[in-house]
Structure formats: C-alpha cells, structure tokens
Write a protein that binds this DNA or RNA. Structure first.
Lengths: 243, 243
DNA sequence: CGAGCCGTTGAGGGGATTCAAGCTCAGTGG
DNA sequence: CCACTGAGCTTGAATCCCCTCAACGGCTCG
C-alpha cells in the first residue's frame, strides 16, 4: 500500500524501450517472445521498465491498474489479507513470468504483488495486449498458457504447502523456492515471519525449523536473505517425513 | 481412477443435443451463452451430455482428455495427491462452471475432478472451442474470464481455508460451501474425512467441530450429506474467532 | 444378521503456540 | 568512538489445541 511502482528506469536516453525489448534476456520464453519483429516495433513505445526495491508493491488487490507486467529480474510474491487481518502468501513469480493478467479483463488486481528482492519489470498496457491478441493467434495461445501456468502454480502451493508438520512444510517450501535459485545455487530465503505467513505458523516455529535444518547441514545460510540448500538431502528428509 | 465418464445420456433420441443446448437452463452465463444461434448450431452435434454418480471421476490428473466440460447440475471437487500420498481437495465447481480448460492447450488435466453429488455435464471437444475461438472474439474473452475465475477461486481457497484454528477453518469452509446452496437454502455437506482433506485435519477433529456447531445451533443437519446453515450466526462466530 | 462404512465421543500424548528473554547487527546521534 | 535504539532472529518454558488410538452406535447391504 505504502510504496508503489512509479519510477521509470530507462537504461538508455535515446532508445529506451528499444533496448529494453530487443536486448531483453528474458524475451525468449516470455509473453512477447512469440511476436515477430514488426509487432515488437509497435509495442516498444508503450512498454515501460520500472524498477522496484525490496518490499515495494507492483500493485495491490482491488486496484485497477490497466497493465500487465513481465518480470525481468527478481522475485515477486502474491499475497492476500484475510478478513481477520492475517496475511497469507499465495505463490511466487520470477524471471519470465507474466503477472497481473486480470487487467486484460478490465478487472481489478486480485492480489497484492510485492517485490521480495530488487525487481525489474516490463509494464505493458492491457489495451495493447488485447489489441495484439485480436490479430496474433500465437499471442492468444501464449496468454492462455500463462493463465494456466499461474493456476497450476497456485494449486501446487495449495497442495503441497499447508499439509503436515511444521518440519514437512518448511522442507516443501525450501524445495519450491529452490526452483527460483540463481546459477550459483543461491536462493532467496524469506524472513521468518514471511515463512510464517506462507505456511501458517508462528515466526518462532519457522525460526526453530530453519535453525534445526541448518544444524543438520541441510541448508547453509549465506546472507540473512540468501541460502544454499542441499537438494538431495532435502528431498531425503522430506521423504522421511512423509513416511 | 476407477470409474470414468463414459455413458452418454441423451434426453431425446432424435435431437439429443438440440435439447441439451437449446433448453439448457445454464446456457445464459455459461461458456457458450455468448454465442449466437448459428454458432450454436455448429456445436450441437459435437457436444455430449454425460451423467455421473457421486464419487465418479470426470477426469483425472495426467490424463489427456481433449475436452472441456461445463457443469449443468451438481458439484465437482478438484483434488490432488501429494507425493507423500495424502489427498488434498483444492476447490469446488458447480452449475455454470467450466472445468478442464487445460485441454484447450493440449495439456493433460492438472487435477482429479470428482463428482461430489450426482452430476450432469456438457462435454465439449477442445478442438471445437479452439476453432470457434479463432473467429468469435466474445468467446475468447469469455474463455479468459473463466480462467481468471478458476484462478481466483483457487486463491480464495488457499487464502481462507488453511489458516487458523480448526473451528475457524470449518466455519470458513461452511461459508464457502454455502455459496453453492440451492434455492431452499440446503447445501451439500462433505463427509467428515473429505472435510479433513480440505482443511488438513483428521476426520475426528472435523466431526467434533461439526457436532459442536450443530449443538450451538449454527448448522442443521438434514440428510447425511445435506445441511442448512444460519449465515449471519456463522459469520458472527467467524468474526468472534478472528478477533 | 453379521459385515463394513461412517459418524461420534473419550482419554492421553505430542507438537505448535504463547509468552518471554536475550542475541546480533545496522543505523543514529551524542 | 560508542552508547542507544529498534528490527530481526534465536532459544527456553509452560500451556493448549489437535492428533492418535480406541471404543461404540447407527445405518446400509449383501
């Protein structure tokens, strides 16, 4: 609610979007990766490339932003607040993901989208996507794919995370987060109270669990927010827990 | 896995689908409600109207069915099984809902879809929907709407249900299920072990909670599978719980 | 009428919460 | 330079809620 994406970072003063799109490392595999060069030309002028710091909001629930975003760098979490006032973290998105698709239907955003790390985005007006969708069938197909991917991710979180003991849930979460790890195997580690909001436990419990896993050598804390995990050991521990 | 939708119930031997579509009470507000008469004509011959009994599978996870379904009568639940072998119920669908949309992307179904009550469906081949989508922009828009609705429903379940005490979770579930109630205010009540799989608790705990709510007069058990709830009292109890 | 499923209820134990204290560390200002 | 502060993390002790194990009753069906 407090901080919102406003600042528009442009890498190059003369041809800002040309650089942002043409050189984009995530274009392949991203929403507009399916477009040809002429279509890409049309969109460049309308796409902004905001940058957010940790904790800033991409958008919040109920807001009618009129734009979708692709994530170029960083990790974004989706959260909602229950009527009782408790925060729940529903799923994560990272590089290459499309978020805020509700805007294509002229609906207000359904979740709060918050930067977990410094984040670089592409902001694409919803009207532009709709317009392109009318002529480009590949874009339509890709859009439906994105929707299904989001649904799948949400259901995976809903299936795997809320069930079982605190230890099991933490292990599962670490495995899901490890999918967003960088090339050196470092992964983003949430704060203890964030873990609590993801797994419906108190911050004390999540702290105890993380500390325990650290003592067992399954996870190595680098920075406060970064860790390296031993995947095979983690999976073994999870299986032992499920048995 | 065991029982699958195969039987093709036709209400009328001469013009089966003509009746199924033209007379369909849920057409307004359903996927093909946006189509005009000529488009409706084209689809009639390809749409089947299977009926399922309680507990039968519409489809199961991993299966490549090549069709989407709209629900005409009844309630369907989506479930997945964790790697540890525990069943999790993720969300519900009822009259007017579109399910199995993954098929439009040539993907296998992502969940098991199981009849909670006797169910009547329309089975629509994915190729037919894709074909119509290429020419009918209203259908495309409606499809995206359905996708977003499914995502929203999944996130609502994920937000509201797994958090808090057993009592709070049961209250929340009853409120969500009450949205599928019929005109007389009767709602479908899951078995105790189904409630357990929805809320991650044992069947004993869910039984205790339901019994307690019955004693408090917040819920009235009619049939074994049917109940009438007192919405205002339920909401008050929930607020008291959240406070 | 016995078998089996489903729901209910009780007793006991264990794991998570609650309440509380102390720790590290970064930022601030005397 | 260093005390001061506050945020985030860790750990301990006591309580409580839910799970586990168990027994029993109603109901349907073979």
């Amino acid at each position: 609610m407090l901080m919102r994406a406003q600042a528009l970072y442009l890498e190059n003063a003369t041809h800002p979007q040309a650089r942002a799109c043409a050189c984009c490392e995530v274009r392949r595999g991203s929403l507009f990766g399916v477009l040809d060069a002429s279509a890409l030309d049309r969109i460049r002028a309308h796409v902004a490339a905001p940058q957010l710091k940790t904790g800033e909001y991409v958008y919040s629930r109920g807001e009618s932003g009129g734009a979708v975003y692709t994530i170029r760098v960083g990790i974004v979490r989706f959260e909602r607040t229950t009527e009782g006032g408790r925060r729940r973290i529903l799923r994560m998105a990272s590089r290459g993901d499309l978020i805020g698709q509700e805007a294509l239907l002229d609906r207000p955003y359904g979740d709060d989208a918050v930067a977990c790390t410094p984040v670089e985005l592409c902001r694409i007006p919803a009207s532009l996507v709709r317009e392109l969708g009318d002529t480009q069938s590949t874009l339509r197909y890709e859009l439906m794919n994105r929707w299904q991917r989001a649904l799948d991710e949400a259901e995976t979180w809903a299936t795997e995370l809320p069930a079982g003991s605190a230890r099991r849930r933490v292990l599962k979460l670490l495995l899901l987060l490890a999918r967003h790890a960088d090339a050196e195997g470092r992964m983003w580690l949430p704060q203890r109270n964030e873990i609590g909001d993801m797994l419906d436990m108190t911050l004390e419990t999540s702290s105890r669990q993380i500390s325990q896993l650290r003592r067992e050598g399954l996870i190595e804390l680098l920075d406060t927010r970064q860790a390296r995990v031993h995947l095979p050991a983690l999976q073994a521990a999870l299986q032992a827990e499920d048995a």
